[in-house]
C-alpha cells in the first residue's frame, strides 16, 4: 500500500473550486486506504498507515493514535466509518489552526 492509484479525478475537475478539490482529496484518501474487506470502513491497520503516510506533519494533532485504535475495540473487527475519519481530520485541522 502507500502507492495510491486513486487519483483519478472526476471529469469536471477543472471547474471545481479549491474547497471542493480539498473535500474530494480527503474522500479519495479514505477510499485509497479502505481496501480490505468492507470498503466503507478503515481497519485499525489501514488507519495507522493513512495517518503515518499521509499526515506526517499533522498526525500529532490527531492525538495518540494507539489510544484511538484501542478505542476502536477488537483489532480484527474494529472499523472506522467515514464520519469518524472525518472527525479525526477535524482534530488535525484544529491542530493546524493552533499553529
Amino acid at each position: 500500500m502507500g502507492q495510491c492509484n486513486c487519483r483519478k479525478k472526476r471529469k469536471d475537475c477543472q471547474e471545481l473550486t479549491d474547497v471542493e478539490r480539498a473535500i474530494e482529496t480527503v474522500i479519495n484518501q479514505f477510499h485509497c486506504y479502505a481496501v480490505k474487506g468492507q470498503k466503507e470502513y478503515l481497519t485499525p491497520n489501514e488507519l495507522r498507515e493513512l495517518v503515518v503516510q499521509k499526515l506526517p506533519h499533522l498526525g500529532k494533532c490527531v492525538g495518540p493514535l494507539d489510544e484511538k485504535i484501542e478505542c476502536m475495540g477488537d483489532p480484527d473487527e474494529a472499523k472506522l466509518e467515514f464520519g469518524e475519519y472525518w472527525d479525526m481530520m477535524g482534530d488535525a485541522a484544529k491542530g493546524c489552526r493552533r499553529k
Partner: peptide
C-alpha cells in the same frame, strides 16, 4: 508547511476557507 502531503494540503485548504 512547505512540503505537506496532498491530504495535509486539503485539510489546510479547508481551514483557510474558514478563516477567509
Amino acid at each position: 508547511m512547505a512540503e505537506g502531503t496532498e491530504l495535509e494540503w486539503a485539510i489546510q485548504m479547508l481551514v483557510k476557507n474558514f478563516d477567509k
